[in-house]
């Protein structure tokens, strides 16, 4: 697999981006030149160092409170990654459980579960997020729960379809006829067969969750005030987009490049597992 990645330039690029982001997130304290919360209000809104008004101590410039943009972007990777990683994980668990049960058992169980799924899908997700976060307060944990739940329900349908597909295979029926119980069949025989699809979907969902965090920040419902996140930096800098464009461009680029990296990696994974797999 690694050899394959190195051979493919696009895959190599995407993996390098992801490794960089993960390194940022894990070692933020050591990499970032300052604490992301250090304020220097006398030197606020500095442009990046290559601008004629730039200052060498703020490489990517400073924000409204004179905080170092580079440090905030490095630390911001943390929340973005946590939200997308754990949100996707939760989504996968919820989606797989509902999808597998629904697809495998069929009948009444399927009908009830799918109606519940339909309700959540028909409910404009952004409103659900707004209500829940308004009630429970903005926190990383709450965002993960809301995002994971809603995407999980979405995944349930896809996974159900895959399970139905696998179930029709003869070997499942054969296993059943030799007396294996349902749980065993689902876990040992059906899930491994849809694992490839799950991995591909998961990478794409991770990308979507990073975008979701920025949309919530735009509506003022992101994570707590002083925690730096890309989405919030971008949302806060949007009034500055004409006068101090750098403040909006860097977090915007961070989001775009990371999401691009994840997407490219997902695409590559899909080709790797099954070149003929059609995008859902």
């Amino acid at each position: 697999m690694i050899r394959q990645i190195v051979k493919n330039k696009v895959a190599l690029f995407s993996v390098l981006v992801l490794i960089l982001v993960v390194l940022f997130a894990v070692f933020a304290e050591f990499i970032a030149p300052y604490s992301p919360e250090d304020q220097h209000i006398e030197s606020k809104l500095l442009p990046p160092v290559w601008d004629e008004n730039g200052n060498s101590s703020f490489i990517l410039g400073s924000d409204e409170l004179g905080r170092d943009v580079l440090s905030r972007i490095i630390h911001g990777s943390r929340v973005s990654l946590i939200v997308s990683l754990f949100g996707t994980l939760l989504a996968l668990i919820i989606g797989t459980v509902i999808g597998a049960i629904s697809g495998y058992y069929g009948g009444k169980v399927d009908a009830i579960l799918m109606r519940l799924v339909d309700i959540v899908l028909a409910f404009p997700f952004i409103l659900l997020a707004i209500f829940v976060i308004a009630i429970t307060g903005p926190s990383v944990f709450n965002i993960i729960i809301v995002a994971g739940f809603a995407t999980g329900v979405n995944l349930a349908r896809v996974i159900r379809g895959e399970v139905l597909h696998v179930k029709e295979n003869d070997f499942i029926e054969a296993t059943h006829s030799i007396g294996a119980n349902n749980f065993r069949i689902i876990v040992l025989h059906i899930l491994p067969n849809i694992a490839n699809v799950l991995i591909v979907i998961a990478t794409l969902e991770m990308a979507n969750l990073i975008l979701l965090e920025s949309a919530l920040s735009f509506l003022g419902l992101g994570v707590p005030a002083e925690v730096p996140t890309w989405g919030k930096m971008l949302a806060e800098a949007r009034t500055l987009i004409i006068s101090n464009p750098w403040n909006a461009i860097f977090p915007g680029l961070a989001i775009t490049i990371t999401v691009l990296g994840i997407n490219l990696f997902g695409d590559w994974l899909r080709d790797y597992f099954d070149p003929k797999y059609v995008e859902k």
């Binding site: 990308a207 920025s214 971008l234 949007r238 909006a248 989001i255 997407n263």
Partner: peptide, 14 residues
């Protein structure tokens, strides 16, 4: 891909 990866409000403002 870039079209898919940009936050909507950012794209609008740009």
């Amino acid at each position: 891909l870039i079209g898919q990866c940009m936050p909507v409000f950012w794209a609008g403002l740009l």
